[in-house]
């Protein structure tokens, strides 16, 4: 595409992919957020990382931000589609409870990444969010900038099948989209990821990630062994179930002490549930889950995530109250 005057005026000062992340991190760190690292187990969205899924439960205020590579095997396109990725990067932010000026803060964060709102069209359009396999939903918006959805803004209402009190605001910035927009490139693979300040030499998104997109598309669509995937799924599910049952008995026990309850490995149990979720996505990409089976398998994952969430909420309240009395 020929470069228009508009395009060059946009891209000349545009942030690199990594600068975009730095700016967002700095912006929110300055506003009291804990900066976390990406969670190191496969997830389909930043919401599924325990820093969101488990931290939103219970009364304790928390503010956290992290970049989360999010895997959606069925969305892979062998690196051939300029707009679709198997793995994209979300900058995920949780503000619990949401400050009254949360929208204004969000708009400031856009200014912080170089978007002059006076020269763009911004709309908050209704878009409610739900993750049935996690018993989670909320109401909110897709934030549209010049017709492009750049952020999902959700007021979480329920998680793990439980009402949240306080609720929290979840902001999910789609980093590839925003970077492509800021740099005015048509293909995600043309995004400048980093630039050598001395030579001006650029490393593109394609150089960093294209091979991964290609190879994982091959694996997800062609190679992954369906029987093995089911085997893994069943193994993780069985272990998770056993642990959830144990947690349930222990946390409801009147004889068990606070220390014993506190050390029960629910965080590890949650990882087993996440493994199941990712395996489901892989099976789905392989076309191994029929429409009729689908609902059933989602129900199995939901039983795990909701089971962990309920136990986790109980563990928090039990150990919090006992530490007060101790």
């Amino acid at each position: 595409m020929p470069s228009t005057p508009v395009a060059s005026s946009l891209s000349s000062s545009a942030l690199t992919f990594q600068e975009l992340l730095f700016r967002l991190q700095n912006f929110w760190a300055e506003r009291g957020c804990v900066l976390q690292q990406p969670y190191d187990v496969e997830v389909g969205a930043g919401t599924m990382a325990p820093e969101t899924f488990l931290r939103v439960l219970g009364p304790k205020p928390y503010r956290v931000g992290y970049a989360q590579p999010s895997r959606r095997p069925a969305d892979g396109r062998y690196g051939e589609n300029p707009k679709r990725l198997f793995k994209h990067t979300q900058f995920q932010l949780i503000l619990k409870p949401p400050p009254v000026n949360v929208q204004e803060l969000y708009l400031e964060s856009l200014e912080a990444i170089g978007i002059d709102l006076g020269k763009h069209d911004l709309k908050f359009e209704e878009d409610n969010w739900e993750w049935p396999a996690g018993g989670a939903w909320g109401v909110g918006w897709q934030v549209m900038l010049d017709g492009l959805e750049i952020t999902q803004f959700t007021y979480f209402q329920q998680c793990g099948g439980m009402d949240l009190d306080p609720i929290c605001a979840e902001l999910t910035y789609g980093l590839e989209r925003i970077a492509a927009f800021l740099q005015d490139v048509d293909s995600i693979y043309d995004i400048v990821w980093a630039r050598d300040l001395e030579t001006g030499a650029a490393v593109t998104y394609g150089e960093v990630r294209l091979a991964e997109e290609l190879q994982f598309s091959v694996y997800n669509f062609e190679v992954a062994d369906v029987a093995k995937l089911w085997e893994h799924f069943n193994l993780y599910e069985a272990e998770a179930k056993t642990l959830i049952d144990q947690a349930d008995a222990l946390l409801h026990s009147e004889t068990a002490g606070a220390a014993e309850k506190k050390r029960f490995p629910l965080l590890a149990t949650y990882e087993l549930a996440l493994k199941c979720s990712n395996l489901f996505n892989l099976l789905d990409a392989r076309g191994a889950i029929s429409v009729t089976e689908r609902v059933g398998v989602i129900g199995r994952i939901r039983a795990l995530t909701v089971g962990v969430a309920k136990a986790y909420a109980l563990q928090q309240s039990e150990t919090a109250s006992s530490s007060l009395t101790a």
């Binding site: 946009l10 763009h120 069209d121 005015d184």
Partner: peptide, 14 residues
């Protein structure tokens, strides 16, 4: 200038 930017952005999405 803003209108040009906005037009360009919307056209790109479309």
């Amino acid at each position: 200038e803003g209108a040009a930017i906005i037009r360009h952005g919307n056209a790109g999405v479309l």
